[in-house]
Amino acid sequence: MNELKAAAVPGRERSAGRAAAASATSARSRGGARRWVEAGALLGVGAAAAAWESARRRDLRRIEADPAGVALFERPRGEERDVVAPDGTRLRAELFGPDDAPPLVLVHGWTCARRFWAEQLHALADRYRIVTFDLRGHGDSEAPAGGDFSIDALADDLQAVLDATVPDGRRALLVGHSLGAMSIVAWAGRFPDEVERRAAGAALLNTGVGDLIDQSLIVKLPRGMRVAKAVVGGIFLSASGPLPPASPISLRAVRYVALAPSATPAQIAFCQEMVLACRRDVRAGCGRTLSRLDLADAIASLTVPTTVLGGGRDRLTPPPHVERMAAALPRLAERVELPRSGHMGPIEDPHAVNAALERLAVTAGVAPAVAVVS
């Protein structure tokens, strides 16, 4: 029996050895698999980072090579002036051109700044007395102490700018883009007695007077989901979270939301820079105003010759807005559609926009001595 026990011990030891060896092999196998997974993950991260950097550099090369960037990023410099709104908010205005030239007041839109009008300054500042200003909270203008970004406050701001920059007895062409155009319509409704005294004509570019969320093409949902679209649209307009830094993704997001596929790299980058520079509280405050905007009654007070212009590829204020405004205006001067343009018409198709403004000046009887009307 002892001999059998003695003989069995080496067998157990060999079995245990084989088990240990198998366990070690299994551990090495798991460790190897884990290292392969880790290596694969690192390779994936590295590949993604390389692709991201490649896209970023490619975008930069395209932007730098785009001739449109010269006019956009190297805008003229004018005479800066501070204007104080009725509620005490300080607005930064800038004036260009000869003092005795016909006044042209340019009002930019949501999340932009007065430099939005770079193309118009290059083309028109030698023949017009151009006034630009930053909407409250935008660019170099102060944000209102009480957080008032209402459309009435924006109308009051426009009245203050006109009082400070357009001499008595002179009538200006009022040109607004998006929220800037809405501010002009709101001004007309708020100050109807001032309209024909202060304005010779008006141009409403890429804008609307209501139903902005319902008509928007940013989020496309079936007709039966209007409530869901209203919720999503309201969140989009009034979101106060920080925007991501400039990147290949943000560049493409700005193009999708605000420009047409035909927009050039410099045009997209210029718009991206303005949007990302806008303060988040200002973006949200004005967005809330846009989400509940209704100027259907006010537009009847805009009793001067008025041009309405829209982009055929505008997702934010698509063509039905142009049709609605054209039908409601007391003195429609011209209806213009830029079929290949998105929401940023003055940037995407500046020659067509500038020509439309010059035609309006002729219609309104305030054209300079030399004007391009074709």
Results as ranks from 00 to 15, higher is better:
231 V>H: 02
41 A>T: 15
303 T>M: 03
311 G>W: 07
25 T>L: 12
113 A>E: 15
200 A>C: 09
31 G>D: 12
273 E>K: 13
288 R>I: 03
104 L>S: 00
202 A>N: 09
328 A>D: 08
198 R>T: 03
248 P>A: 14
30 R>G: 04
95 L>V: 07
125 A>V: 00
357 L>I: 03
254 V>G: 05
307 T>R: 12
281 D>A: 12
90 R>S: 10
222 P>R: 06
305 P>E: 05
245 P>T: 11
259 L>S: 10
43 L>D: 08
227 V>T: 12
5 K>D: 08
12 R>Q: 10
138 H>F: 10
55 A>F: 09
303 T>P: 01
44 G>K: 11
292 R>S: 06
217 L>Y: 04
274 M>W: 02
80 E>Y: 11
272 Q>S: 11
286 C>D: 13
290 L>H: 01
217 L>K: 13
127 R>S: 12
49 A>F: 04
81 R>V: 15
239 A>K: 03
372 V>F: 12
317 T>G: 02
315 R>S: 06
83 V>Y: 05
283 R>W: 05
94 E>A: 12
69 G>Y: 09
113 A>I: 00
246 A>F: 01
19 A>W: 05
249 I>C: 02
140 D>F: 06
346 P>I: 15
183 S>H: 06
268 I>K: 06
107 V>I: 15
226 R>C: 02
77 R>E: 15
111 T>C: 15
248 P>R: 14
286 C>I: 12
162 L>Y: 00
320 P>Q: 09
297 D>G: 08
137 G>V: 06
298 A>E: 14
32 G>C: 05
224 G>M: 05
172 A>E: 00
64 E>K: 14
255 R>Q: 15
225 M>E: 04
76 P>R: 14
104 L>E: 00
275 V>M: 14
272 Q>C: 08
88 G>N: 09
66 D>T: 11
221 L>P: 08
244 P>C: 10
39 A>Y: 07
220 K>C: 07
61 R>I: 04
201 G>A: 03
297 D>M: 07
122 H>I: 09
180 G>Q: 04
111 T>Y: 14
339 P>M: 08
136 R>P: 01
310 G>L: 10
339 P>S: 11
127 R>E: 09
330 P>S: 06
117 W>C: 11
130 I>N: 00
317 T>A: 08
300 A>R: 15
365 G>T: 06
71 A>D: 14
48 A>L: 11
122 H>P: 12
371 A>T: 11
277 A>D: 15
85 A>R: 04
322 V>G: 01
278 C>E: 14
361 A>P: 02
37 V>P: 01
128 Y>K: 02
138 H>W: 01
179 L>C: 01
183 S>A: 15
237 L>E: 03
261 P>R: 09
115 R>N: 13
131 V>N: 00
346 P>F: 06
330 P>V: 06
235 I>C: 04
215 Q>T: 13
51 A>R: 12
224 G>F: 08
35 R>Q: 12
358 E>H: 01
347 I>A: 03
237 L>Y: 06
263 A>P: 03
10 P>I: 14
83 V>C: 07
51 A>Y: 07
65 A>K: 07
